[in-house]
Design a protein around this nucleic acid. Structure first.
Lengths: 297, 297
DNA sequence: CAAATGATTTTTGTGGATAAAGAACATTTT
DNA sequence: AAAATGTTCTTTATCCACAAAAATCATTTG
């Protein structure tokens, strides 16, 4: 049956909102809450119902009065707020990128379902979704062939990435001056400079910045296929680098500098220079990815 | 429950094999049949069982003697050999590309399941698979938003196609002389010339040739993402042109000539010329796709 | 005794059931 | 009467059941 992870997630987010308000204050209308928390009124009402039950609020018709501050134990643990889909994704990615499966092996749904303790449908749907990343392939009536996170995969990924990113950079330079991307870019430049100053301590924050930077560049292409491809890169890097923390500080230091080069060239509207800087950065990224694979196997 | 479409398909294919043999001849071993027809021995045995039952063969242990020629009525109708997945795909594509849905509408699984007379799981799995084509997008807990086969979609598709195809052409020129792609290319050149001569009559055969031509070009990239993208193009064109037969002869005449230009340039190893010819061809393809959309709405 | 057949076990493809979540309709309140 | 709440109906997410198909194990045969 369906899990009530959504309810639990909204519940937690509702508690966050309540914490912002003083005791005795009133909560907005159901429709307002529904809009703010991005859930249906049905779910909101379920949450309010529960909040009244644990006597965190008093709920009489349209009067919802906060009785006390939310406590740590009023929250659901984050594990329970995730959908099965997310659970399977994480379990699978950790296995595949962690190298727990042999390349070329035939994965079967029932085995994975047992391993992850979910139904076969959940695994099946995940695998269908995941197959677009090119790491597995369906063998009808037999299962899924694991093509593996190999050197070839990394090369193919990098090739397309370079193609897309170069194109995006070229389009970015020619964006009209009033495009809001320029504002976003100067803002990112500030953030890069700020991070550069305190990189020794906060180098782990780079991955978030990195993601936003590339997403902005890609957005210049305004192309769903190109943007979707960046989602793939994001997920690969997200999970992959959980097992490859080697040289992270050095890598990030170099990357920040490279990003800044690209940003400066873009602001100068120097297409030649921007492409060159982009090339340098991507060559580095490719190298990092490749070496991390060799390091793994 | 699971349909036995596979059994029926293998059954038909088995009859095709038997037709090649004289009455009284013996069929190969189960394992041989299994290998030849690409099915498990279980399915082969089910087929043999049935063939014995309708007294088309005599089956005693490892002796399988053909008793008579297969008749038309021994075959299962092709409709029954298709999986639900294929049924849903066709039904859905005809609806979406035929413009039976409004752009921006929220598609719901249960409605589609009723409409196509299959289970919600079948629809759901299809939609997940299909979402990678960028025509629909999931709204969690709500359904699927139809982004539609719009002009923007056609432009985004064409842009990426040009990026990939240009790259493939560039790589093709530099393929080593001993690469078997060269042989395939000269063979395709012959086929193009042959078709050109009889295009007035056989212009419908072009689509198959077109597909093989581009697939060969793409193969030079040897990149799963690029090849996957061509699969998307193929499916879009396959279904889309079932509703746009306008000017097909003229279009195909032009395309054959353009293909021949590209092929010649490739054989001459003239990268410049090949890219130029490719550009012309793609510009034409883009135009055709765009005009067909305007024509539709 | 290796290869083929026979029998059994496991897995996939598909439909269906059900709680959670959303949407739509009905009623109340300001 | 517009907006909010209360109620009911529909759809989604998830699990499970079961026949078809594959995989595996056991037995026979040349």
């Amino acid at each position: 049956m369906k899990r009530n992870n959504r309810y639990k997630d909204i519940h937690n987010r509702c508690l966050d909102q309540i914490r912002q308000l003083p005791t005795g204050a009133e909560l907005p209308t159901e429709s307002k809450l529904s809009e703010e928390l991005e859930a249906s009124r049905t779910t909101i009402r379920a949450v309010l119902s529960h909040l009244a039950e644990i006597e965190l609020i008093d709920w009489q018709g349209r009067k919802k009065t906060i009785l006390r501050k939310p406590l740590k134990r009023d929250y659901f643990v984050s594990e329970e707020t995730r959908s099965t889909h997310q659970i399977v994704e994480q379990a699978f990615m950790e296995n595949i990128l962690g190298g727990h499966f042999d390349v070329g092996v035939l994965l079967n749904e029932s085995e994975l379902a047992r391993q992850f303790d979910v139904s076969t449908s959940a695994v099946r749907e995940f695998l269908i979704r995941f197959s677009r990343f090119g790491l597995i392939e369906k063998a009808p009536n037999r299962g899924w062939i694991l093509k593996g996170f190999t050197q070839k995969f990394a090369l193919e990924l990098s090739d397309v990435r370079e193609l897309f990113e170069q194109r995006s950079v070229r389009l970015f330079v020619n964006l009209p001056a009033r495009d809001e991307a320029w504002q976003a870019l100067t803002h990112l430049q500030q953030e890069h400079l700020a991070l550069q100053a305190r990189l020794q301590q906060d180098y782990l924050q780079f991955s978030n910045l990195d993601n936003r930077f590339h997403k902005l560049i890609y957005s210049a292409s305004d192309n769903r296929f190109i943007n979707d491809f960046y989602d793939l890169i994001t997920i690969i890097f997200h999970y992959h680098y959980r097992w490859n923390k080697k040289d992270e500080l050095e890598r990030n230091t170099a990357a920040v500098a490279q990003h800044l080069d690209i940003i400066q060239a873009l602001i100068d509207k120097d297409e030649e220079q921007a492409l060159a800087a982009c090339k340098v950065h991507l060559a580095q990224a490719r190298q990092t990815l490749l070496s991390s694979i060799d390091w793994e196997k």
